[in-house]
Design a protein around this nucleic acid. Sequence first.
DNA 1: AAAAAAG
Length: 552
Amino acid sequence: MAEAEAVAEAEPVAEEPRTVFADLGLSEKLLRAVEESGYKHPTPIQEQAIPIVLMGRDVLGCAQTGTGKTASFTLPMMDILAGSRAKARMPRSLILEPTRELALQVAEQFVKYGKYLGLTHALLIGGESMDDQKAALEKGVDVLIATPGRLLDLFDRGRILMADCKLLVIDEADRMLDMGFIPDVERIGSIIPALRQTLFFSATMAPEIRRIADAFLRNPKEITVSRPATVATTITAGLFYVPEMDKREALRRLIRREQVQNALIFCNRKRDVDILYKSLKKHGFSVGALHGDMDQSARFATLNAFKANEIRLLVCSDVAARGLDIGGLSHVFNFDVPFHSEDYVHRIGRTGRAGREGHAYTLATPEDGKLVQAVEKLTGAPIPRMEIEGMEPITEAEIAEAMTRKRGGRGSRADAGRGERSGGRDRHGRGRERDRDERPRRAAAPPATPAAEEMTEERPRREEARRRDERPRREEARRDEQPRRDEARRDEPRRDRERDDHRRRDRDRDDLGPPVRGFGDDVPAFMLIPIPRPRKPRAETGAPEGDAAEAA
DNA sequence: AAAAAAG
């Protein structure tokens, strides 16, 4: 896997005689499995970490995926554990991973390299039935590979006894921190024996990470491995400024014009993953989707199909940004500029691996100017601006203007991701001041005029509506049923444009909206009182513009 | 502001 590749990649570069796995003190059985997988030479982190781990010492490893990090702890762990057996409910080691996919990847390595050792493992992750996991625990497992939530859940149900767990691996600690898992991880640290060996890995060593590491480790050996220098140079990056409404079209053109073998396409939001996925599918691309709201079987199935090259494109959220080991991606597309600039680095790091050439192309709207700046500041170099043939380029001036106008943020959640925000094209200083005034003018629909007319007509009507006392309350009363309606529409197999037109009409109707159904204009006052309810999380997609108004 | 993870 990652490690596998990293090992393979190191080979052609080799000039002087190098270490082989047999030099590291691993057992015969393990070496055989490693060799059968086709690897001879350990990567730098494997070379440094494996002997230390075998000595029983703690390790603080600063390394990213693709450096062979996983094997640097799985291999020696297996040798440490080999020879004795686990008792029921008493696992002997624990590996914590931030995402389910990563946990699965580690488990796959255990199967691959542990085949002659007769070690057992259990994969404790959410989204899957607990029964199998409980059964495995009951039989006794040597290695737990887990995400924090499910592990604690099972522990709290008394299915796991930690007394024998004397080897702990915390992988991707920086990501655990980002994802708010640290309290969970700390709790896990408190329920597992203090007398243990701990291996702690993180791609970065921010002060906060170091503090946590100090709490977990005893006199650790610190091992830092930088990415292979070749990686940076094998990625060709490019940045395309396009209006929000043209992003899907721009992406399609890009995909068609590039020699895309297989590509990840990142969106910032899960909803947009769904939307873009459907759109690409409709346009006949070989595509899958991956995000954390999908059920687990679909997540794994899609990922496997993608790895097996049955699907060429994978639209995903940042669940796939880090650590996922998907070999030989020709391209990474950022359909959105990531909110956090570090994520940019993680995302594009999925391509250009194993010494192969990679391409990382980012679509940005003029509103994304700030985010782009942040990315460029982090990477220390501007991303080369590129243009797409046949699409009107956006000028620097327009971008600059959008950035100064930006005060007040990106507009509503509701609008933001759908690719229909009026976006930077709204260049006459007009529609930006209030979200509620933004009309979702339609993407590729060429004539700007009808939409513009709509707007000028709309506005006075709305102003009037706003003045009326009961109006806002009516809107709110209707809001509750809106998401479901929009959601339903989203699934209609129509062309994007048509569909969005429908949606727009819906909203217009809302604004003047019939009040509560069945009462005409004589709605009892109490029915117009908005019912405060906790906002449903983003699963309720297609939130109406009403939300925007509220947010503003 | 969003994503991940426990249901």
